[in-house]
């Protein structure tokens, strides 16, 4: 393998990985704080995809504005979904299974609703950035590089909020012991809603970055959900930092496996790796860190 090929594989791995990290860290944040495994997380991505279509293509807003509007929209939708469907159930003693069932139902509902509203034809979003970056002998479209950079910035911002702000402190307190948090006066119910919203923003960022490269469809979130879950397990259930690290690792593994086996096998390699990790280290590779 030439060094150019190597750098290309690493870069591709990091780019794919940054999407996995965005999706997985959102799932991890919600799971870590509320113990809810959100099967409708992929649909928050899908809704963001349609948000970009609406704001940037249909309404013709500038990219940055459309992206911001999309993020705000999915944050709001995330909060509403949590308040209306999940929060009431969590007041009951036996919520654990019911909530899983509800998020699966939500996922199906949102996919079908999208299909009814926007139909089956897949739609694309034009590139946000034109041009090709040249790094040594490696040529990479700016659009793809931007995925990595923006994802890093957004996840960095999220980590800053989690570990350096008052909001972050009450999120971590709720994650570590919701009842003790409630006892000191932290409204842990509202914290749960806020965390859902932040997680929706992470998923939305992923969808926005992907939207020029994939087609926006009712099912666009489904495949990423599976990768997101894999990342959450690899990262140590509920660890934000672990999920970010695991996302990049999974991206790199997939990228390198493509150069050895054909691309249809990259998913197989990724999940074989996941199963191996579950065998050897069921607590995850990066357990014990993060929120």
């Amino acid at each position: 393998m030439s060094s150019t090929q190597f750098i290309e594989l690493v870069l591709n791995g990091l780019i794919t990985g940054s999407i996995y990290a965005l999706v997985g860290s959102g799932i991890a944040l919600v799971y870590g704080t509320t113990r809810v495994l959100n099967f409708a997380h992929g649909e928050l991505m899908m809704l963001a995809g349609y948000g970009v279509l609406l704001f940037s293509v249909t309404l013709g807003w500038p990219v940055l504005l459309a992206a911001l509007a999309t993020i705000l929209l999915v944050m709001l939708l995330g909060a509403i979904i949590q308040r209306v469907t999940i929060a009431p159930l969590m007041k009951r003693e036996d919520w654990a299974f019911n909530v899983v069932a509800v998020t699966i139902g939500l996922s199906i509902f949102l996919q079908s609703a999208a299909q009814l509203i926007w139909g089956e034809q897949f739609q694309g979003v034009p590139y946000f950035f034109s041009g090709v970056a040249v790094i040594g002998d490696v040529r990479m479209p700016w659009q793809r590089i931007a995925i990595l950079l923006v994802a890093l910035a957004v996840m960095g911002l999220c980590a800053l909020v989690l570990f350096r702000t008052r909001l972050g402190r009450i999120i971590r307190a709720t994650a570590q012991d919701a009842e003790a948090a409630l006892a000191v006066g932290i409204p842990s119910g509202l914290v749960h809603t806020a965390v859902f919203s932040i997680s929706a923003a992470l998923a939305g960022t992923g969808a926005i970055l992907l939207s020029p490269l994939v087609t926006v469809s009712p099912w666009m979130g489904a495949s990423y959900l599976l990768k997101g879950f894999a990342v959450v397990i690899l990262g140590g259930l509920g660890s934000f930092g672990g999920a970010v690290a695991a996302g990049f690792l999974l991206g790199l593994i997939e990228s390198f496996s493509v150069s050895f086996v054909s691309s249809e096998w990259s998913n197989v390699v990724a999940f074989v790796f996941l199963i191996a990790v579950i065998w050897v280290r069921p607590e995850g590779l990066f357990a014990g860190r993060g929120a």
């Binding site: 402190r169 971590r172 307190a173 570590q176 012991d177 009842e179 003790a180 948090a181």
Partner: peptide, 9 residues
């Protein structure tokens, strides 16, 4: 009961 501190803080 059992202190219930925020263990990682």
């Amino acid at each position: 009961e059992r202190r219930r501190l925020f263990p990682r803080m």
